[in-house]
Structure formats: structure tokens, C-alpha cells
Design a protein around this nucleic acid. Structure first.
Lengths: 195, 195
DNA sequence: TGACAAATGGAGATGGCCTCCATATTTTCG
DNA sequence: CGAAAATATGGAGGCCATCTCCATTTGTCA
């Protein structure tokens, strides 16, 4: 999938600088006040270079998004390797809310730029869903989480959280949703499914 | 709020034509393939007229959105006046899903255009929430719906539904969510809150 | 009906987006 | 190592969508 061609050293360097600068500007929420050409200057490259690497604003957004997703998946894997399953899941989800809260501008900018028919968005979503599925599966194997709920539900909750960013007290509600989800997932003796 | 100034007759006519044509083009999903000036031609007015009424694509989107919200609120009020409360609520929510399903292009276009800091979006959301609140309150008064859940939860569900439009079998899932919500709202004898 | 106000439309200025290519840098190979 | 080939760079300039401006038309009011 990402096996295109090995980039020349300087090209790779420029590409990385562009993505890093983009994340920075996205996060600050300043991206739409900027001419695309000026963004090139800001990153210290010529416009030609910018356009070769990223033909459109959207392409740039997709690259940033891709990196973000990769980092999150990585984090999920690391947590799963070092913590008990249930704890790994909880830590990951709570961390997700922290992450969204800390990078509101980034989330908003990415959402705006990829609102229209972005294959990358779907692909990233799937990658994240796979990571969550793994976390869940481990917890189910542990016996700490019920086995009749799949990752889709959790993903919808996360999606809802990140989409509702303008709610007055978003943070409290988001934490509430996560608590609800974690609580709901816990395996327990109940009326319909006695353990 | 909308008490600016009475428009001259021809101005009002042009404005209406523009909004109607915009809704049509949005719905077909063709809006982003169009030069803004060409849209003016398509609606049968000069570019000057277009720009006087709607300085930006976003302004046009907000006007369409506003109309859409007004129609939905109207529908809620009409249902509330002619049906038993619980039925009115159910019909409204189901109709909401139908509406979103039938106007996918419109929903997508509006979401794209108003993704960025749109006060109109927030305002429309509040108007819709008020309508749902009224429907709920009536049903609570009837005794057919529990009284410890507010409209916010329902709004989040609707929001999630309209945002997840690209899911493979969106329709089934959406219906599922509505069923879940309606079911959850029904007043009943249960373990924690005996009636 | 006349006079004033409001609205129109489209020609043309403006300025952002993107291409193109002469030059510079990296890599490969003798 | 040095030269040739391959790859990448940057920014001047063309192109075209966006938006403004105003001479003309249309509606309103007395």
C-alpha cells in the first residue's frame, strides 16, 4: 500500500518538514487564513516542491491524518503489550478523549478538509477499528469484558465524541460517554445474560 | 433575529430562486464541480445579484440549512398537533431517517460547507433540539415516556446517524439506533426505577 | 404619473492556484 | 573518486475563478 518508491533523501526531508508544519498550522487553526503558496514559504520550501508532494490542501490533510492514525494504532499496540487487557482498553479510550481535547484545532481542520468523499478517512477509520477490535478481543479472552459487543459500537461512540466538539461542556459529556461504554462492556451478572 | 428589512418584491423572488436552485444542486452533489459564477447563470441571475444575496458559498449553505431546519421544526409541530404524543415522537424520528436517506447529497454538501465554525449550524441545532424537547415533554406528560432522559441524548443519536452516512449498511444501522432510542425511552417497570 | 430608492447584471480588476523548466542536489556506476 | 544519469528544487508567470463596481432597469410611494 505505501510501497510506492523510495524517495531521495532531500525529498523525504522536505516531505517530513511539510507534514510537521502542516500539523502545527492545523492545530493552531490558522490553515484557512493562509494562501497555499504562503504555507510553502512558511515551511521553507518553494511552491513547486509543495505542489509536487501535495497537489491539494486535501492531500496534505490526508497525509497528516495518516500519521495521526498510525500514532494512535501504535499507542494501542504498546498499551496492549504492557498492561492487563481491560486496563489497556480503558487507558486507550481515555487517552483518546485527552488527545482530541488537546488537539481540537487539528481535529476540526482535518474534518473540514476531508469532509468530502475521502478514501483516506475510511481507510484510517478501518485501521483504528482494527486496533480497538484487538484491544476488545484481548479483554474478552481475559474474561473481563462481555463477548457480545463488537468494536463498531465503540467506534460510533468515539466518532460521536469527536464530532460534537462544539457542545458547551464537551469534556464532561465525553468522559461520561466513555464511562458509560466501559461500564457497559464490563462482564457482569445481570438479568439477561447471567455469567 | 430575521427582522432585517423587508426586501423588494423582485429581490425576494431572486433570493428564493437562488435558494431553491441551490438545494437542488446540493442534493445532486454537483455543487463543487461548479464555478460560483456559473451557479448564478444556472439560477438565471447575474453574478452581481448572486453575490449581493450570498457573499460566499457558505452563506448560501446557511440559507438552505436554515430552510431545512424550519421545515423540520414545522413538521414536528404539525405531528404534535395531530397525533398522540408517543406516536408523534416516533413518527418524527423515523421521518428524520427517511429524510436524511432521501437527501444524502444535501446532507453531505451542507456538512462540508458548514464544517468550519458556523454559527448557523449551532443555531439550527438548538432549534431542532427545542422541537425534540417539546415532543419529548408531551410524551412525558402523557406518561408514555420516562422523565429522566433529555433531548440531548436523542440529538446525539441523530447527529451520529447523519454523520455516519458512509457506513456500508447505514440504513439498517440507523433504523436500529432509532428503535433502540424509542425502546429505551418507553416508560416501563424495571429494576432501578419501578413505576 | 413622476421622482426616488432599490436591485440588477455583466465587464473587468484582482489575486490565489498551479505549471513549467533552468538550475541544483543526490545517487549510481565505471 | 569523478562523471553521467536520475531526481528534486524553487519561484516567475500564466490562467482562471472570485468578487467589485456602476450604468441601467425595475419597483415603490405619494
Amino acid at each position: 500500500m505505501t510501497a510506492d518508491k523510495p524517495l531521495r533523501a532531500d525529498a523525504q526531508r522536505n516531505r517530513d518538514v511539510l507534514i510537521a508544519k502542516a500539523r502545527e498550522v492545523f492545530d493552531a487553526g490558522d490553515f484557512f487564513d493562509l494562501r497555499f503558496d504562503d504555507f510553502a514559504r512558511l515551511a521553507g520550501v518553494g511552491t513547486g516542491t509543495l505542489y509536487r508532494h501535495f497537489p491539494t490542501r486535501e492531500a496534505l490533510a490526508e497525509a497528516v491524518y495518516h500519521g495521526e492514525v498510525a500514532a494512535l494504532c501504535d499507542r494501542a499496540r504498546r498499551l496492549q503489550a504492557t498492561l492487563p487487557a481491560a486496563e489497556a482498553l480503558a487507558t486507550f479510550l481515555r487517552g483518546m478523549v485527552d488527545h482530541i481535547a488537546a488537539h481540537e484545532g487539528l481535529a476540526r481542520t482535518l474534518a473540514t478538509l476531508m469532509a468530502d468523499r475521502s478514501g483516506a478517512r475510511a481507510e484510517g477509520g478501518r485501521a483504528l477499528e482494527r486496533a480497538v477490535t484487538d484491544l476488545l478481543a484481548a479483554a474478552v479472552r481475559d474474561g473481563t469484558v462481555r463477548d457480545d459487543v463488537d468494536a463498531g459500537a465503540v467506534m460510533m461512540a468515539l466518532h460521536g465524541i469527536s464530532a460534537a466538539h462544539d457542545r458547551p461542556d464537551w469534556r464532561a459529556e465525553a468522559d461520561g460517554v466513555i464511562t458509560l461504554v466501559l461500564d457497559g462492556l464490563r462482564r457482569r451478572r445481570d438479568w439477561s445474560n447471567p455469567v
